[in-house]
């Protein structure tokens, strides 16, 4: 574990917590893409499938974190699609998730470290995570704005994988550890946030709201 991965995981936890708090406190999921949250839930379940396959003795933080990620993302989907369904902006959350899931699954079968079920599920999860934020970014471009709290969520969510890139540089340099698939997908994922990061840093930090040219 290094400082970059530690802050990356903390940033990821913060993102999940910010979104949950926003939905729970405002009792509304306006401006939140339910599809993105579904894709994240799929990512966690397919990536941490080993938790279900053999007994999980909660002896280390990694397993606890995996359970937190899975339960929090499933609970977030429950809030969006059931509890606060009336506030779900289905009309604007219109990016076809199939256009993300099918290519990720196909690519996972073509480009992977080893052609076995668990490894292909892990690879699928990595590819899907790289593009899972697209429905959320698409929704914001359709509505033309993002609530400040949602901007904070996106900043934390984007920062998590950006910090992981620093973690991979660190591990390459000090541990000569390289996980090419995770690195390439992580770089793509972070690039997708670039224009949002620019807007966040130039606007939200100054207290303005993000309003995209409609």
């Amino acid at each position: 574990m290094n400082i970059f991965r530690l802050f990356g995981d903390l940033s990821h936890l913060a993102a999940i917590a910010i979104l949950l708090l926003k939905i729970w406190k405002t009792r509304s999921c306006a401006g939140v893409s339910g599809k993105t949250q579904l894709l994240f839930a799929v990512c966690f379940i397919t990536r941490y499938i080993d938790l279900f396959l053999h007994f999980v003795s909660l002896y280390n933080t990694e397993k606890v974190m995996k359970l937190i990620y899975i339960s929090a993302s499933v609970f977030t989907c429950y809030l969006i699609f059931f509890k606060f369904k009336a506030t779900y902006d289905g009309n604007h959350d219109s990016m076809r998730a199939e256009f993300l899931i099918v290519p990720a699954a196909g690519l996972a079968c073509l480009i992977n470290t080893k052609f076995d079920a668990i490894e292909i599920l892990w690879t699928f999860s990595i590819y899907l995570e790289a593009v899972a934020i697209l429905p959320q970014l698409f929704l914001i471009s359709k509505t033309g704005e993002a609530e400040t709290i949602t901007s904070h969520y996106l900043f934390a969510q984007g920062s998590y994988r950006a910090l992981y890139i620093l973690n991979w540089i660190y591990r390459y340099h000090y541990e000569s550890h390289v996980d090419t698939i995770a690195i390439v997908a992580g770089v793509v994922q972070t690039i997708l946030y670039c224009d949002f990061f620019y807007l966040y840093i130039t606007k939200v930090v100054k207290g303005q709201k993000i309003v995209l040219p409609a």
Binding site: T113, E119, A182
Partner: peptide, 10 residues
């Protein structure tokens, strides 16, 4: 650590 295929990151 562990085998190559053991992904030790979240």
């Amino acid at each position: 650590g562990g085998s190559l295929l053991h992904h030790d990151e979240l």
